[in-house]
Each structure stands twice: as structure tokens, then as C-alpha cells.
């Protein structure tokens, strides 16, 4: 499917999706509540077959944390970007997709470690890189510590 078809497909599943900024891939901004069901449909449906989540990351923007899911079908060779905006900047929380793609389990652990976004239903949500007693989440824009160079 091409960009328009994919966007239309997602619209059919999640009517209140908004188009994203990416010119490169089809991109949809969906509400956090519908993320898991949408991903499951996208993965399992014969027309989309998004079996490969190749990148999952978070971005700290002014309007909240953006969860960006880059997914791809290795059979149909189309790529889709799903974006979820978490407006709660203190205790952001989103559902985990690690039961759909195993790789997501570790992407999510990294995001939890560096952004402090909690993933519900995650099987093993521990810090990945930093020590368990590390204070703060370094990739947040408001993160400050005594030894980071200020520019």
C-alpha cells in the first residue's frame, strides 16, 4: 500500500487520527487509548501485515512526549509511522506493544530508562543502561545534573 492507502486504512480503524508531519512515510497521530488495538490490527491484518517494528522511540516536545513507532511489513514492504502524544509530562504512561513485537520490549526499557515513560503491561520494566538508583531521566529536555555541559 502507498502512503494514502495506509493513512486511509488507519483512519478506518481509528477515525479520530490526525495526519503527522512526516513527508517520508505515512504517518498518523492516534490517541494513546487506541494504540494497542490499532497495532494489533495492523500487525495481524492480511492487508497491512506490519510484522516488523524497526524503531520505537520517544521525543520530548513542548506539547508532551511523542511516542514514535516505525513499523514495516517485511512481506508487503510498506512502512507506517504511528505517533502517540502523551501530554502528561510528569508521569507519562502508555500501553506497551512488547506483546506484539518482541523487539519493543527492549526499546521500551530504553525509553523508560531515558525518558521515564511508564509502559503498562510491560513484562520486565527495569532500567536498561543506567543504574537502578539513578535520579532523573537524561533524555528529557528539562534534565539537569552537575556535570552536563551547558551550551
Amino acid at each position: 500500500m502507498n502512503i494514502e492507502q495506509l493513512t486511509a486504512w488507519v483512519t478506518a480503524l481509528v477515525p479520530d487520527q490526525k495526519p503527522g508531519v512526516s513527508k517520508q512515510f505515512a504517518e498518523c497521530i492516534v490517541p494513546a487509548g487506541q494504540l494497542h488495538q490499532l497495532c494489533k490490527d495492523l500487525r495481524d491484518n492480511r492487508n497491512t501485515q506490519m510484522d516488523y517494528l524497526f524503531c520505537e522511540t520517544a521525543v520530548d516536545r513542548k506539547d508532551g512526549f511523542h511516542m514514535v513507532y516505525h513499523m514495516k511489513s517485511t512481506i508487503l514492504q510498506h512502512t507506517l509511522v504511528i505517533r502517540v502524544i502523551l501530554t502528561d509530562k510528569i508521569n507519562p504512561e502508555v500501553v506497551s506493544v512488547s506483546d506484539l513485537w518482541h523487539g519493543a520490549e527492549f526499546f521500551e526499557r530504553e525509553i523508560f530508562d531515558l525518558f521515564g515513560i511508564r509502559f503498562t503491561n510491560h513484562p520486565d520494566l527495569r532500567r536498561l543502561f543506567l543504574e537502578e538508583d539513578w535520579v532523573g531521566y537524561p533524555l528529557r529536555k528539562d534534565y539537569k545534573d552537575s556535570f552536563t555541559l551547558e551550551r
Binding site: 522511540t57 521525543v59 516505525h70 520490549e105 530504553e110
Partner: peptide
């Protein structure tokens, strides 16, 4: 960049080891 993310190959390749 406001944010740069590297989707590195080894990160994903590592965690399959337990499996």
C-alpha cells in the same frame, strides 16, 4: 537536532540471545 535517535543494529540483535 532537537532529538536524534540511532536505531542501532546491535541493540536489537543482542536481546534475542535469551531466546
Amino acid at each position: 537536532p532537537a532529538r536524534i535517535k540511532y536505531r542501532t543494529p546491535n541493540f536489537s540483535n543482542l536481546f534475542v540471545i535469551n531466546k
